[in-house]
Design a protein around this nucleic acid. Structure first.
Lengths: 242, 242
DNA sequence: CAAGCCTTAAAGATATGATTTATTGCCCGT
DNA sequence: ACGGGCAATAAATCATATCTTTAAGGCTTG
């Protein structure tokens, strides 16, 4: 049966991706009912593959499956909003604006704390990585290479979160990376990065290195404040992609 | 075949729970390899059930499955630490102390922001619920009924997070509830709640009601600071259960 | 008109066979 | 002896058929 359908890795993963993103991006309304048989036909795969897919979607809270009824699309309140895949799917679809705002506010709370913790726990290597990332940011910021700037920015924040020595905060690196990526790819960034932003990043790195938790927290707060301000002030929200 | 093991809901869920908590609580070292056949025997269920279970565990990052090799237990860095089930499993097992500390630090970042947002978005009903919860806390705090106090405390924080108007923050209610519960159930709380804590909760409620974001944030910061201090100052960390 | 039974549609579970794929180790040429 | 390719094979992956369980919705009856 299965002939084409470029399967990235497992067969069920492609189905998962397609169905999941359809639901997460609002393509299927909550309460909508699907049957396994229908899905079998729709995707041209066997029952077992569909069932595995459904189990995963169920575990993410996107659907619930009841006998004699079928597979019901769940309301948003049921979703595991922290699941990285759901975040990605939503960013790729409908509610991108709202999603970015939510994530921005989350960062607002999390990153200053991470900075303060990092000031107390960062290893010398991590301090090095931090200042290295800042230098990259400065270079590419001046040259106007947004992609490279983004990469350095992500590296900076990832390193910082990991340096916090807190697993949960470390687990948010993916989320932060998505936010930063989404932000630049959807033109919610100034064409040329704020010099002030780079300076604040440098301040964070400096404060972490010298173990000054309060200063690190303060500088980081500047960064996320600025990020929020830029996003709100700028672009209305447009649904158009690049 | 399957005869015992009263399954709460689906058959695969019981297997999921057992295997998942085994892994999450450190009962199986990272790198350990399992085979599907082995698991079939071990749990006395059919292959498809095992496969569905594995798919879910895989989607939580707890294991990875490769052909010709088997199912490999993943390193902690791969886990989806925000998955509510993983949190529960870990709190029930080995790394409870570390888990509570991580979650505490997370709260530390998130809740003050949520309070500030709530001050701007809370509906009148939510304000009412907030002050109601505070009153309950005061009553039960005086009477020394820790369970009832806990319930009111959870209600307070849940309401606040929901009132923030931010989905992601709202999605953390479960996490916060787990922390509060774990804290009192493992005697990391004073036998009689700090009067100061109750006063701060009242201040938060007051500030939210009057729309004073800065004051709400400040008062909430007091609360989480105090919580951290109590947890660190108190009990050493011991692995002993009640 | 309501309480309970019956039909039946759909998921849940099992069993089994076919297919893929990557590891392992053997064989062969250099 | 050594390294690269090739075959054997173990294990997951996918497909299919069949049976069981559950509960929704209609039907029957007091």
């Amino acid at each position: 049966m299965g002939d084409n359908e470029q399967t990235t890795g497992g067969l069920h993963q492609s189905v998962l991706d397609e169905l999941g993103s359809l639901i997460a991006s609002g393509g299927l309304a909550a309460g909508q009912v699907l049957t396994i048989e229908e899905l079998e036909l729709r995707f041209g795969v066997s029952r077992s593959v569909i069932r595995e897919t459904i189990r995963v979607l169920e575990s993410m809270g996107l659907v619930s499956s009841r006998r004699r009824v079928g597979v019901t699309v769940a309301a948003r309140a049921e979703w595991n909003l922290f699941d990285p895949r759901i975040i990605r799917w939503r960013l790729a679809g409908e509610g991108r604006g709202e999603q970015l705002r939510s994530l921005g506010e989350l960062r607002h709370g999390v990153e200053p704390v991470a900075a303060a913790l990092a000031a107390r726990h960062a290893t010398p290597e991590q301090c090095g990585a931090l200042t290295g990332a800042v230098m990259q940011m400065a270079v590419h910021g001046r040259s106007g290479d947004l992609e490279a700037y983004l990469a350095a920015d992500i590296l900076f924040h990832r390193t910082l979160l990991e340096a916090s020595g807190n697993e949960m905060l470390g687990a948010l690196t993916g989320v932060v990376a998505e936010v930063l990526t989404g932000r630049t790819h959807h033109h919610l960034m100034p064409a040329r990065p704020e010099p002030a932003a780079i300076r604040w990043h440098a301040e964070v790195a400096q404060a972490v290195q010298s173990g000054d938790a309060a200063a690190a927290e303060r500088a980081m707060r500047n960064i996320v404040d600025e990020a929020t301000r830029a996003m709100l002030g700028d672009v209305p929200d447009g649904d158009v992609t690049a």
